[in-house]
Design a binder for these strands. Structure first.
Lengths: 267, 267
DNA sequence: CAGTGGTCTAGACCACTGG
DNA sequence: CAGTGGTCTAGACCACTGC
């Protein structure tokens, strides 16, 4: 069976563009077939040909569609599954990952209680303190790849565990992508906020970067978290990205760490 | 070619032990061949048949040794490489991972400068403040899977970047495994501490868990880090594990986060 | 029972490294 | 050039799911 895709198609593009610019082909940039298949599947995910939670076609179907062997499709899916974009379920199929699944919830919330398992406290109480439309300052704009002055939605909320306010978060979203988001929607939605983003705005968060510092409680944060002024808090700044590495959320969190801690595993 | 290993060997063990206990075989616990191969390779790593930095036998050789196909060995090695226990180098071979490699250094040190790349500050200055033999209290013993009162080596040191003291660390090691470790050795060794552990004590750190909190500088920590009393510091408690999930190091670090931050990537 | 993902094999060929 | 890991294929069979 001859593949319909050239093994060197991407390389050809790179080489030709380098040639057009007069560059002397720095790297052949060989791209294996399965990487190209991976790219095609990724493209379908971006274009939401299959939505979060849905099954994608079987390996056999995809192999036929792309005119490659099942093993090649398999390797592409393997990588996407390793990146948590797809979830394989033996006997059932391969599914688009979603933040609505229980086991995924704690991949993005690393604050866990000192005693007991991560989810042992039941559902966190979420209180929305503020919701407003603001123009991005230079910092916010840079983080979200916007221009200074572009419209954003800002949300301030407090998460409480067992009645104790533990997390204060300020969230900024590009207004264009989240047009129509309301406080009511945010307040009434059961489940992770990122699941709401998936179903209502077709925005799927794929990865995030967090910068963590220790800072004293000030600016009224101490009142909202019910701690003394200048109490050390964990400051967590997160930028969350969608499929094509587009930043779609900036989040500044302040965590109390007297009964919880930020858990990280290195390997 | 018939495999010399039974596909169900591990399953058989589990089933028989469950049977001996009168259990009614809860899970067949099917173990694929490549997992068994992975286990055998892991065993050789533990027994240091191949030492950190050395090449392991080629895929073909291992396939012949274990009487399986190259593809099966390949899948086993794939997983070990994904876990950072092995490193593949095309055209050269597969090597036992080591902390002596440049690119590995920053997998375990997540504190990076606010400006500039992770390694841009040059080598950190390390000053050993204290080195003593102490008996483990209940906390230390639990963390290192020792008994209270067992001997440990305690090291206190300060890491400085560009002349600024930034990290204060207390390290506890089980004395039995690190017999003969001296201050001179620690002070004179160039490169990561974990690389020293590999070459001198045959202890290879494979993964670690970190619990992070925000705490005020007290107990003289403020003097060693040259900050004011009660300045918020990042408290990082790490337990590091060797191949077979044996804890071999407890480390309590206090990080200044005025010019650096703890960087974490979620996916 | 059919359909899915998961394992295993055998062989061909490619890309990369170093002598 | 030989030796290594990397890719791709084709086919057989296994484990799991749900009808």
């Amino acid at each position: 069976m001859r593949p319909a895709l050239s093994i060197h198609s991407e390389a050809a593009v790179l080489a030709s563009s380098a040639g057009a610019l007069g560059g002397n082909s720095p790297t052949p940039a060989f791209s294996p077939l399965y990487q190209q298949i991976k790219g095609l599947i990724l493209q379908s995910l971006r274009e939401t040909e299959w939505r979060p939670g849905e099954a994608i076609p079987s390996e056999m179907e995809l192999a036929a569609r792309f005119k490659v062997s099942q093993g090649t499709v398999r390797k592409a899916i393997d990588e996407l599954a390793a990146e948590n974009l797809l979830v394989r379920r033996q006997g059932k199929g391969t599914f688009v990952a979603t933040h609505a699944e229980q086991n995924v919830q704690f991949r993005f919330l690393k604050l866990v209680p000192d005693r007991g398992a991560p989810g042992s406290e039941g559902r966190a109480q979420r209180d929305i303190i503020e919701f407003k439309r603001v123009r991005a300052n230079a910092d916010i704009a840079r983080a979200l790849a916007l221009r200074t002055g572009d419209a954003t939605l800002q949300i301030r909320r407090v998460l409480s565990f067992g009645g104790t306010p533990t997390i204060l978060e300020d969230i900024w979203l590009p207004a264009v992508a989240f047009k129509g988001l309301t406080v009511e929607q945010l307040a009434s939605f059961q489940g992770p906020t990122y699941a709401l983003f998936e179903t209502q705005f077709n925005v799927r968060m794929v990865r995030a970067e967090e910068k963590i510092r220790a800072e004293p409680a000030t600016n009224g944060h101490e009142k909202l978290l019910k701690v003394e002024l200048m109490t050390p808090l964990l400051s967590v700044e997160r930028i969350a990205y969608t499929y094509k590495d587009v930043p779609m959320e900036l989040r500044r969190g302040y965590y109390r760490t007297d009964t919880h801690h930020y858990q990280n595993n290195l390997s």
